[in-house]
């Protein structure tokens, strides 16, 4: 009897201690269609904290990370040689996210502590890393440059305190997607933190795809490049001839 009670308490206690609180989340859309009039999009991420006992008395935080498909990139640095500025050093980096948006419910360092950030790769500087290069002394400068350039282009964003947290239970935020999106599967990670430690997470996906005419042209350009090229030329020649004829009639009449 005692044994049974022990086992039962163990069963109930373990999951309860591991996940006192659980995050449940949803998104306004899991498919972004890029058509001819696409000017960017907005994804609404919302959810709630599910708990079976009263909330503990520690700082609650929510982090939303939306990450685009990774790319291989070459980062080049200019230096002055013979009086002109030319590319001298270059570093190839594989697996750089094409898009990276972080939204938090408070100041980032308060919501996610350093250890949790390093382990779960939450912030953008944790998500990009390059191999040691013996010939380049300051690899970190190249990583910093990637982040700086992409932040400037609104491809990497950190919006602190942009998540509304209601009564320690309900949360929502809107993440802006710019128009220069790379196609592919985007990952949405949602973390629940207590005192900066991640206590629960949720992951879902958003697919970004070209549709309609955009899709057709893109496929034609890649699958039938010769026909695509001839089509481009045909349009150019017809347009040129058409304009000339139209103008001639116009100036006569």
């Amino acid at each position: 009897m005692l044994r049974l009670v022990l086992i039962l308490t163990l069963f109930l206690a373990v999951p309860a201690r591991a996940q006192q609180e659980q995050i449940v989340a949803g998104m306004s859309q899991n498919r972004v269609a890029i058509d001819a009039t696409f000017v960017g999009s907005e994804i609404l991420v919302f959810g709630a904290v599910k708990r079976e006992r009263p909330a503990p008395d520690s700082e609650l935080g929510v982090v939303v990370v939306i990450e685009g498909p990774t790319q291989a990139i070459t980062v080049r640095r200019k230096d002055r040689r013979f009086g002109i500025w030319i590319n001298t050093d270059e570093v190839r980096v594989s697996n750089v996210p094409s898009f990276y948006a972080v939204a938090t419910s408070g100041v980032f360092d308060d919501v996610v502590n350093e250890e949790a950030n390093a382990r779960r790769l939450v912030s953008i500087d944790e998500a990009i890393w390059i191999l040691d290069r013996p010939d380049i002394a300051d690899e970190q400068a190249f990583v910093d440059a990637v982040i700086r350039i992409r932040e400037e282009a609104d491809l990497y964003t950190l919006k602190e305190s942009s998540i509304d947290l209601n009564q320690e239970t309900l949360f929502s935020t809107a993440v802006q997607l710019p128009s220069n999106l790379v196609e592919g599967l985007y990952t949405a990670r949602i973390y629940l933190t207590r005192n900066g430690n991640i206590v629960s997470d949720h992951i879902s996906y958003v697919s970004v795809q070209k549709v309609g005419l955009e899709r057709w042209l893109y496929n034609l350009a890649h699958d039938q490049p010769l026909w695509y090229g001839l089509l481009s030329l045909a349009i150019a020649i017809i347009a040129g001839y058409g304009a000339s004829t139209a103008f001639r009639m116009f100036s006569r009449g």
Partner: peptide
């Protein structure tokens, strides 16, 4: 070419 550019780094996608 002659004036120091504001951004010394550039990104090329492959």
């Amino acid at each position: 070419l002659l004036v120091e550019p504001k951004e010394l780094y550039s990104i090329g996608t492959e």
